[in-house]
Design a protein around this nucleic acid. Structure first.
Lengths: 337, 337
DNA sequence: TTGTACGCGTTATCAT
DNA sequence: ATGATAACGCGTACAA
């Protein structure tokens, strides 16, 4: 009794198909059919039912529909770091594409401490898929995901596991391209602003740079750890430029490069005359007139497109072999080299 | 038969409580209890069940649990424009807070064309709440939401409807504060870089500015429409500064202001010596050394905190009266005024 | 402390 | 073309 009262007072119960059926004088099945395209139902009746439904504010309950055995249409999106411009651009594009496909992204921010708990909780939903953007998900969690049988697509970090597809930029190759441009332009004294050590994007880019320098008989004169952020890039560049004489600063990503550029300007170093600054990613900001940053484009749209494609493939054939798509970056010449 | 085969081949069925129960030699209820805190269950048995469950990769199905009548823990977050820095910062903070509270945000980007359809689809889930960030949701949709009985919290745009709570910045007041600072500093020739006309944030800020100018016996010499973006701000400022002699440029938001600042510099106008540029919002970028933008802070963290608070209130008492919380902005003096 | 039985709202299947 | 009925996986009131 008390409970009954509580419920009716506290939460207005959702309108169900049965209520609509009663109101329209038809069976519950007909109501269901009225909302399912391609089912046998008298056109007039369908129209009438939908009118009644609209008046009563009825919508089929997607939870119940998902339970029945179909897809939930829920996709978890795990973002390494929502404070990074590249990840943000990626997520924005991804959310748009998923929305367009009637897939609903549940966002989890990896920047937080409680991420692991969050993932566990979200895995309780029967997700259509789990999309990883960069970052630092623990391998234990990855195992658990594949165990649960949730298709996974990882971007920016290659995960070797059954049922996991990957989209990743050829980081070393991108850095090679940029390095060659600078070497060809006669730069000889290189510095590197790194990102977090554990991230393969940073280390991969570094190794590409070093490789080309080796081939050209040059060495990496100095490097400093960054954090993939503007501020860290600023500080790293200040230190590097104070302690060394450099004519080229290769940065592990655009945010660092923008920081480095700012530092160089503040120190009165002419860019690009006496110093080249090159980034990686080609985020929107790189195009702003203030920065006009020469960089290596890691095309967001292409990456997202591939992720969506892989998702589609995996959903139509859950048992297909894992796939890894590598994306080719390319140099975008602007005003800082 | 064919169907059976199809299912078993195509999708590895999720492990259910019954499977675990069979494997552990207990009843299905016990498995359920093992995952529900505060239920009677032998400690050893609970432990054993959880072990078996972990080995089999079992997680209670949140969809089925939500169906039973409890909460779904799903919260739709409708973002006006994920390409705007302020909205992005807002969403990032919001997602973090929601994650921490075991609420799972489903993101919908309002920048897209298919937004309306998307909202309709997402409303099929029994959402715990719907959070609106700024933007341009149609009033018809708002009506529909309240009809369905989904609690709504709107930020950045006041929605007058039953069951809808609001968090909004005192836009006019913020502009007044900034205008007074500039007037007191002796600025007399004001220009305004507007945002989209239909947005109350832009018009509210404009009216605050005009009000103070009136009181000081000044007039707004020129204004140009922007789009709340860096590029639009850049173009608007170019036009304004080319056609007028101004000593103060008040911008409807920080993105515009950053564009305006860039334009002024490019035109060789000394900021702040001969021109003040002031923004609104205090996004992260405003603090970057390159910009060091004087602006009016529209505190994201406070707004998010209020939204979460309202959400909590509304969930504990769904029938409480609608509430509107106004947030006080304040001036942040930096290097451009 | 544990098991049985019912209901949550839907869709698919089977009759009619 | 339409209505009855059986799942879907879970929580929980009730019985034991």
């Amino acid at each position: 009794m008390i409970d009954e009262k509580d419920i009716s007072i506290k939460r207005p119960r959702r309108v169900t198909a049965q209520t609509v059926a009663d109101a329209a004088g038809v069976s519950r099945s007909s109501v269901s059919r009225a909302f399912t395209p391609g089912t046998y139902l008298d056109a007039d009746k369908r129209k009438r039912i939908r009118e009644v439904a609209a008046r009563m504010g009825y919508q089929p309950n997607a939870l119940a529909a998902g339970l029945k055995g179909g897809r939930s249409h829920l996709v978890a999106v795990f973002v390494g770091n929502m404070r990074s411009a590249y990840d943000t651009e990626f997520v924005t594009a991804l959310v748009g594409e998923l929305n367009a496909l009637n897939k609903w992204p549940i966002l989890i921010d990896g920047g937080d401490q409680s991420t692991e708990r969050a993932i566990h909780q979200v895995l309780r939903y029967p997700l259509d898929a789990l999309i990883l953007r960069g970052g630092s998900m623990q391998s234990e969690l990855v195992t658990q995901c594949s165990k649960i049988g949730v298709p996974m697509i990882s971007s920016g970090r290659i995960v070797e596991a059954r049922g996991v597809d990957n989209v990743c930029c050829r980081n070393a190759e991108g850095a090679r391209i940029a390095a060659r441009v600078l070497v060809d332009a006669g730069r000889t004294r290189f510095g590197f602003v790194a990102g977090p050590e554990k991230l393969s994007s940073s280390s991969g880019r570094r190794s590409g740079l070093v490789e080309v320098l080796d081939q050209a008989g040059l060495t990496l004169i100095a490097e400093a750890k960054g954090e993939f952020t503007v501020e860290a890039g600023f500080n790293a560049a200040k230190k590097l430029l104070r302690e060394n004489t450099l004519d080229a600063l290769v940065c592990a990503n655009d945010a660092s490069a923008i920081g480095a550029l700012t530092a160089a300007r503040e120190m009165g170093i002419a860019v690009p005359e006496s110093l080249s600054v090159v980034g990686f990613d080609d985020i929107e900001m790189a195009r702003w007139p203030t920065f006009d940053l020469s960089t290596v484009c890691n095309p967001v749209d292409e990456a997202v497109e591939r992720v969506i494609w892989l998702l589609d493939q995996r959903l139509t054939n859950p048992n297909k072999a894992s796939e890894t798509i590598l994306i080719d970056p390319y140099f975008v010449p602007r005003g800082t080299h």
